[in-house]
């Protein structure tokens, strides 16, 4: 029952702050709302028993990426500046499309999820097993993507520096 309550609190946080993040007229607030959403998502991972993913989400997303955002905002916005609201027509059209999307997807989910999935409550996933899987070369093991990601990260570091440096 406690999990239920926690889940619905998290779901409410996500729903509310997602909407607020994209509708706010102050960028720094948007970023803050995004941080709440990301942390709540991390909470969902915790509920699912993915503790490691929770840690990654918190550290990388809520930690790293948010810092980047905040720096970017501070670099490009004047303090206290508000964004002039977009034309109403544009916003209404976007709302219509989004609501239509939700309705459409909800329809699909509602009429296709007729199986009962039981969430088998297990002990948390052993981190050792995760590590072995990540570093293994067997079937269902992920060394190659791992290495690819590391190369991608390197490329991004170099690329970001190259793009952002002063000429």
């Amino acid at each position: 029952m406690a999990e239920q309550i926690i889940f619905y609190i998290l779901a409410a946080i996500i729903a509310v702050f997602s909407v607020m993040a994209v509708t706010s007229t102050r960028l720094i607030r948007s970023a803050l709302y995004l941080l709440f959403v990301l942390l709540a998502t991390a909470g969902l991972y915790l509920l699912l028993g993915y503790h490691y993913l929770f840690a990654v989400q918190t550290a990388v997303y809520a930690g790293g990426i948010m810092v980047l955002f905040i720096f970017a905002i501070l670099l490009t916005q004047k303090p206290g500046e508000r964004i002039t609201p977009e034309p109403l027509k544009q916003r209404v059209l976007a709302i219509v499309l989004s609501v239509a999307g939700i309705a459409f997807c909800g329809h699909i989910v509602y009429y296709n999820f007729n199986r009962v999935y039981s969430f088998v409550k297990e002990a948390e996933l052993p981190t050792k097993q995760l590590g072995m899987t990540l570093m293994g070369t067997e079937k269902f093991q992920y060394l190659l993507p791992f290495e690819s990601i590391s190369i991608l990260l390197l490329a991004c570091i170099v690329g970001a520096i190259m793009i952002a440096r002063k000429r």
Binding site: L10, A11, I14, A15, S18, V19, A21, V22, T23, V37, T41, L44, I83, E86, Q90, R91, L93, A94, I95, L97, S98, V99, G101, I102, C105, G106, V109, F113
Partner: peptide
């Protein structure tokens, strides 16, 4: 899934309108 929908379409809205 529904939570993720809300989050997703909020993103879509932001992407299209901001």
């Amino acid at each position: 899934i529904f939570v993720s929908f809300i989050m997703f379409f909020s993103g879509i809205y932001g992407f299209l309108s901001r």
